[in-house]
């Protein structure tokens, strides 16, 4: 790892001022960034540690929405009573990320800003119709995820919170790689104010909605409704862990399990 300067601001405005320099990167939990820096995949001149900014942390209910601060750690999300009552599928998802030690450090904002194709939260954010709040604007999840490791965030723009409308039902299922435990294919299903949504993560270069399954579940919310729908393998990821055809097959299997998980 190349050396860098280190800053630990206590307010969002201080952090954003530091991040105006294009060679400066924010660090949240560091569970993805530090391994990347060890591999010298990036060479920031300075890191801005966001963990000293109290307003970025915590979970609160605000009317019909749950607001999660970007620096809230997976373990806190997993255990939060208000989230477990309102969107239990999201709390369960947090409990299936990484391992306990990664969950004690990694944050929701870090994951959503990184937008790894194998990340979990992007499918929840898109399926639940989340709003991603930054230091300067509000971005709907529909406009936020732009493909592999790419989001609508501008250089220096800081994700501060994620707002989730409380759904009627939501469920998630994923197949993990048996060794790395990264997602091979996951499906998040939700029914709520934004209608029925079925979102696939892990299988393609970014999260995507499965329109045929959404239509089927709108008419009949049951695992059987999606059981005969086949996902095309066009554009899906194929690698040493599994072919695009295998991942396409998993979309149907995980969709059935996600509906069962939602109940």
């Amino acid at each position: 790892m190349y050396d860098f300067l280190y800053h630990k601001p206590s307010t969002v405005s201080e952090a954003v001022a530091l991040l105006a320099d294009p060679e400066v990167r924010p660090i949240s939990g560091g569970q993805t960034l530090l391994p990347a820096l060890k591999h010298r995949l990036d060479r920031p001149s300075a890191l801005v540690d966001l963990s000293g900014i109290a307003e970025l942390r915590g979970i609160r209910r605000q009317g019909d929405r749950i607001v999660i601060g970007a620096m809230t750690r997976h373990a806190e999300i997993q255990r939060d009573p208000s989230l477990n009552a309102a969107i239990p599928a999201l709390a369960r998802m947090a409990g299936l990320l990484g391992d306990p030690q990664v969950r004690n450090r990694g944050t929701m904002g870090g994951s959503l800003a990184n937008n790894d194709p194998a990340a979990d939260y992007p499918s929840a954010a898109l399926a639940l119709g989340a709003t991603l709040v930054t230091d300067r604007r509000r971005i709907e999840a529909d406009d936020y995820f732009l493909g592999m490791f790419t989001t609508a965030l501008e250089p220096g723009e800081l994700l501060t919170a994620i707002e989730f409308p409380v759904p009627e039902k939501a469920g998630y299922a994923k197949m993990r790689n048996p060794a790395s435990r990264y997602v091979m294919t996951g499906v998040f299903v939700a029914r709520g104010p934004m209608g029925v949504r079925v979102v696939v993560n892990g299988a393609g270069p970014g999260v995507f909605r499965q329109a045929e399954m959404e239509a089927a579940l709108s008419a009949n919310w049951s695992p059987e409704a999606v059981a005969s729908i086949r996902q095309s393998s066009d554009g899906l990821n194929g690698d040493i862990h599994g072919s695009a055809e295998y991942r396409a097959h998993l979309v149907t299997v995980m969709a059935k399990r996600a509906v069962l998980d939602a109940g």
């Binding site: 560091g30 530090l34 306990p100 030690q101 990664v102 450090r105």
Partner: peptide, 11 residues
């Protein structure tokens, strides 16, 4: 519990 290889000392 945390993994000390994936935390900076300054953190």
């Amino acid at each position: 519990s945390v993994k000390a290889c994936t935390i900076l000392a300054v953190q």
